[in-house]
Design a protein around this nucleic acid. Structure first.
Lengths: 256, 256
DNA sequence: GCAAAAGTGTTCGCTATACACCCATGA
DNA sequence: TCATGGGTGTATAGCGAACACTTTTGC
């Protein structure tokens, strides 16, 4: 899908989109020992928001979320899951919204569709940070990745709440789903994987026990390759083995 | 809120309700060792559905769900929680819906609002079966409680899927939340509680271990009263102690 | 006394936790 | 050689699974 400017898209959406419903995506990535989230900056402001969009009249919620993600990041076929619906009638302040649009020379009347109450479905995506090419489909000049523990001060609407709820969901499912490996590159060391877990949970784990636990899941392939990195023993590289994971799912009680 | 017939309410809902969004409630109860769910029967058919409704333009999703539950069962202030959003564009067959309405002498045109695509937010409620007074607010003549493992054959739309997803959510949170006690009466024996767990999980548990596990949670008050029931030792009665539960939540990592 | 359900005790094995030890490497 | 990070070993505690034993009650 070709990229067109965001604001134009939004002026007359009611012709194609379901009214009153939107989708907001919390896109997680992991880079330099930080759990990152992708935020969009509104032009001519210091206000950030989650990348979101609307639902075409003939597509499912999951399809819409997937399309929005693709449109914003160029990523297809990644892990994407609904986690909560936000339906507070005051979750978006219409005046705040209108002022933001005005600063981008889009002057819509107060009663415009865009400022009506919207219920939003929260999706979180877990993406391989190394595979994102900024500036590909997305106009990332004004946007970017933020450390989840060091977010910008001004986040629009209820998007900070949505973001924190996504993090909470991620933590809850960390030990129940294998989706977390979508945040890692193709190959990784055990230390890097542990760092991801520690960052998500925001607490230290014991190295020896973490290693045993991960290996005991039987879903990692040890690549026997090594690495000439720093002043220490070379770690093994591992790869997430989706076949082993499939077998493990059947044997145990992993979800989906 | 006064009860009015369902069908009348639905003819011109667009004046007051949010368009394109509905709520469906999976109301769980426990009675005679069965996990029950409340289903509504459409008049002049053998088709059942979940009790549902729409959202007023000024209320939140949670408020709407609570209102719908109250309207249908007369129950207020019970445990109610969103569990999933169903957004498949073909989740409701408009013709099926129209035929059902016709059988109740409500002949709406094909393009009527009611037959438009709706996204529905699933809520599950856990209610104390002994506190429900049938025929109070609800016209239960045509409706009633069904064993979750013995549902009617014909369930409208995607409501069977919604129901099963609710059961799945209930199972997942069984050991993480204390909400399950909302399904029990004020006082109960350990055997009754175990029976509830066994029914939800659909598997047998070991009596001795279940007892220890429950007591070790530190959330049950032993009432020392006994009971003259059958040809066996009299069991203790227990009561769920919400104060102890609150303290336990702080000490451990229970949610909400 | 016997069957049935309830309460308690005990053993076994697994897992989490904590820490100890050795290995490999670059400065 | 020393600091750093990586890999493995081990002792302990706690919990869950499984089963045994005792208690209470109605028939």
């Amino acid at each position: 899908m070709e990229h067109t400017t965001e604001y134009k898209d939004l002026i007359n959406p009611e012709q194609d989109f379901l009214p009153g419903i939107s989708i907001d995506c919390v896109i997680f990535g992991f880079h330099e020992n930080q759990l990152k989230v992708l935020l969009i900056k509104f032009g001519n402001t210091d206000i950030y928001s989650l990348p979101g969009g609307f639902i075409y009249k003939e597509e499912s919620l999951d399809e819409a979320a997937s399309r929005i993600l693709d449109h914003r990041t160029g990523i297809e076929d990644t892990y994407l899951e609904q986690f909560y619906v936000f339906g507070n009638p005051k979750r978006v302040n219409p005046e705040e919204h209108r002022l933001i649009m005005q600063k981008n020379d889009v002057d819509l009347p107060s009663g415009h569709f865009l400022f009506n109450r919207h219920i939003t479905v929260g999706y979180y995506a877990l993406v391989d940070f190394t595979k994102i090419q900024p500036h590909s489909h997305l106009n990332l000049e004004e946007s970017g990745w933020f450390d989840i523990y060091d977010l910008p001060e001004t986040i629009a609407f209820d998007h900070r709440e949505i973001l924190l709820k996504a993090l909470e969901s991620l933590r809850l499912f960390l030990d129940h789903k294998l989706a977390v490996f979508n945040l890692m590159p193709e190959t990784f060391t055990m230390g890097e994987l542990q760092s991801l877990y520690e960052t998500i949970l925001n607490k230290k784990l014991l190295r020896a026990n973490f290693q045993r636990k991960m290996l005991s899941l039987g879903i990692l392939e040890r690549l026997d390759k090594k690495w000439g990195g720093g002043a220490h023993k070379a770690p093994y590289l591992y790869r997430f083995d989706s076949q082993k994971a499939e077998a493990s799912k059947l044997a145990n009680q992993f979800e989906e």
